[in-house]
Design a protein around this nucleic acid. Sequence first.
DNA 1: GTTATGACTCTGC
DNA 2: AGCAGAGCCATAA
Length: 106
Amino acid sequence: MNAEFRDAVYQIVGAIPAGRVASYGQVARQAGWPRHARFVGRLMGQLPEGSALPWHRVIRGDGSLPLLGTPSGEVQLRRLAEEGVAVIGNRVPKRCFWAPGEDGRR
DNA sequence: GTTATGACTCTGC
DNA sequence: AGCAGAGCCATAA
């Protein structure tokens, strides 16, 4: 994958404010790569453990967590809850999604 | 070069 | 609302 894409994705993900989430497609689109939602996910999976990126704030478009049933999913769920994201039934309400250009307030 | 796969998304049932 | 199928695009075999 182009380093450009990787860098853009990192930038976008890092820009997501705490207590807010974004979908893969959303991140991909804002990074400038519209149809690469899957690759955002791939990058997350390839992300080093020590990375400071809030990968747990990146979820599916419908608000469900793709990692449910895996240890990473538990961690993600726990971190989101700690950041104030309302996780309902292993899912996040759309109102908690990150609006581009927004800080986190509504 | 073709086939299979995947931290996805959309549409239709 | 939940499930199934098709579309999408880079990687790997």
